[in-house]
Simulated assay, not measured.
Amino acid sequence: MSLTRVLRLLKAAILAALCLAICTAFCLPAAAQYTGTVPTSAPGLNVHLPITTDPAVLFPPQRELTLMPGDLLKISVYGVDPEYTDSERVDLDGSIRMNLGGVIHVAGLSVKDAEAAMSERFEKAEIFHSAQVSIELTEAPQHFATVVGEVKGTVPVLGPKRLLEIVAANGGIPATASTILRIDRVGQAEPIIVDIGNDPARTMQANIPIFTGDVITVGRVGQYYVLGAVVKPGVGQLSGSVPVTAVEAVSAAGGMTFPAKGDEARLIRNVGGQRTIINLQLRQIQDGKIADVVLQSDDILLVPSSGLKKFLATQSSGTVIALVVAMATILR
């Protein structure tokens, strides 16, 4: 074997050992707690959804069930001889075609109003006099609320329902889910945002009525990564009800090592679909001089050593992002 080939193999072995050392150093877990919201005006940081507080929006008057296309109706007429029964499905145009009485539009009407409309039709057509019409909704394929995101499913809504009942019917809120829920409602321009939290009083306040057609989105809180000059680099699990700040994440990772450059930390965050570098001054944050940062899902916090700081200073932002993301990928 030639000397050149031996040198190449030796170089490859050294690189492989270095990669293994990096993997071993970074594959340790981390966890953290949070003690309160930290406001800041820095762009891209601590962005949160505004919680809906208007009682008129959160607790509107209870709505009567209204008929919709696809509903199957059992129509009975009492007080006539012989008694009349019919079974009709509401067409896409919102009407039904009765054997007696012809076509009548019922979509958007309550059951009570539809009964009155049919009785009036029978009276005008001189089919039945003073007819007592009863409608039974036997199939209601469109009367449901939908849950998407970390919790998935549909729940029939044929009477009064509450948010927690709908979520519980689909398995409840998992540990990976956010406690801040979004409800999109037909006819309402802005979504409803509620925080069911981990406080029973807050949870009950957020247990709002749910109506047919509502779409409930349960978001994912995900993970964050702490890399570089900390005692225990690794992955931290975000909690739906207990946010984590940058300083707390570093503390959960055992703190910074010597000679960490805390005021030269980088936060790699997905902003608008693109990875972005946000410079953090951890020492300044620890001293209470500037606001802390609440971490988001897939945030990567890099605390450089003096040597790594010098290396990063010579690289483009694209290269820094690629390097840090590659380091975090090892931990997945």
Rank of each mutant, 00 (worst) to 15 (best):
residue 120 E to D: 11
residue 295 L to N: 02
residue 150 E to M: 13
residue 107 A to N: 03
residue 15 L to P: 04
residue 135 I to K: 05
residue 130 S to D: 15
residue 147 V to K: 03
residue 119 S to D: 11
residue 176 T to E: 15
residue 179 T to I: 04
residue 106 V to R: 08
residue 21 A to M: 14
residue 303 V to F: 08
residue 158 L to M: 13
residue 96 I to G: 06
residue 28 L to D: 08
residue 107 A to S: 13
residue 64 E to K: 13
residue 114 A to I: 08
residue 298 D to P: 04
residue 230 V to E: 06
residue 168 A to L: 04
residue 266 R to S: 12
residue 184 D to R: 14
residue 185 R to F: 08
residue 262 G to Y: 15
residue 44 G to T: 07
residue 327 M to E: 14
residue 62 Q to K: 09
residue 48 H to P: 05
residue 62 Q to N: 10
residue 169 A to K: 12
residue 76 S to A: 08
residue 224 Y to S: 00
residue 76 S to P: 01
residue 15 L to F: 13
residue 280 L to I: 00
residue 101 G to M: 11
residue 325 V to P: 07
residue 199 D to E: 15
residue 192 I to T: 05
residue 142 Q to H: 10
residue 130 S to R: 14
residue 59 F to W: 02
residue 252 A to F: 13
residue 64 E to F: 13
residue 294 V to S: 13
residue 7 L to R: 01
residue 56 A to K: 14
residue 171 G to Y: 03
residue 33 Q to R: 08
residue 119 S to Y: 10
residue 76 S to T: 09
residue 16 A to T: 06
residue 235 V to G: 00
residue 165 E to L: 01
residue 297 S to W: 06
residue 140 A to C: 03
residue 126 E to P: 00
residue 86 D to H: 06
residue 200 P to Q: 10
residue 41 S to K: 10
residue 181 L to T: 04
residue 38 V to G: 02
residue 43 P to D: 05
residue 143 H to C: 05
residue 22 I to C: 12
residue 301 L to V: 00
residue 2 S to T: 09
residue 108 G to E: 10
residue 63 R to V: 03
residue 279 N to E: 15
residue 239 S to C: 05
residue 35 T to D: 15
residue 7 L to T: 00
residue 217 T to S: 14
residue 77 V to C: 03
residue 261 K to A: 06
residue 288 G to I: 05
residue 86 D to W: 14
residue 152 K to N: 06
residue 174 P to Y: 04
residue 18 L to H: 02
residue 297 S to L: 04
residue 268 I to G: 09
residue 167 V to D: 04
residue 292 D to V: 01
residue 78 Y to K: 05
residue 2 S to D: 14
residue 329 T to F: 12
residue 182 R to T: 10
residue 286 Q to A: 13
residue 204 M to F: 12
residue 175 A to K: 13
residue 204 M to C: 00
residue 23 C to S: 11
residue 264 E to F: 10
residue 264 E to H: 09
residue 123 E to V: 01
residue 258 F to P: 00
residue 82 P to T: 03
residue 279 N to L: 11
